[in-house]
Amino acid sequence: MPCIVNSVVAQLVDVSKYYGSGEGRIKALDNVSISVRRGDSAVLVGPSGSGKSTLLHLLGCIDKQDEGSVIIDGIDTSSKGLDELAPLRLDKIGFVFQSFNLIPVLTAYENIELPLLFRGYDQGYIKHRVNEVLEMVHLQDRMHHYPRHMSGGQQQRVAIARALVGNPALILADEPTANLDSRTGADILELLLYLKQKDSITLVLSSHDSVVLERISNVIHIMDGRVSIDSPVF
């Protein structure tokens, strides 16, 4: 295992993942073991189809590995089904998707409050916290806007706010700048890194963006489902 430290937030142990069956079976991840420490950040790098997204999905407990173990904040998820893992995702993981994935019929405020609502927080706290993260992503003036009335950059800010709002142990961002122009992409990256710095969040993202690679020192290279790591500690 490349890295095992005391405050490990997410850990993949000898994880393999296959797609398809029979002769067409493809090994998307091949015996991967990585650990992510609390408060650190890492970027997954590799060509299309290398297994970046698969790795992120397994870390985010939205897909199941065929072999090995995925441990999130000390909880071994291996024996649990995806629906059983819903509370874990709700409490410990925040997602930022490439295509924002906001609920189109909800306003920015309502999209952001969703994870807190399903965690069962009271309205007073929800209001306070949502306003807090809206301020962090500089979208107070857009809180009552629907996604269709916002630019791509603004939508991604809402998605970041939604990921942050529950103070998750781990934030996963799957190519968060890929659907944005370079300037907006850079802004979004700055925002993520600023928030990481400010709140000591743990951030793992995948990206092709060279700007991202310049700004994040911990790089996990993936090629044909195998992992190599530049920095042994991240």
Binding site: G60, I62, L82, D83, A86, P87, L88, R89, L90, D91, I93, G94, F95, F97, N101, L102, I103, P104, L114, P115, F118, R162
Partner: peptide
């Protein structure tokens, strides 16, 4: 939309 809800931890 369903996938997003499930991904952020909303159960089936």
């Amino acid at each position: 939309e369903i996938g997003t809800l499930k991904a952020i931890g909303v159960s089936n």
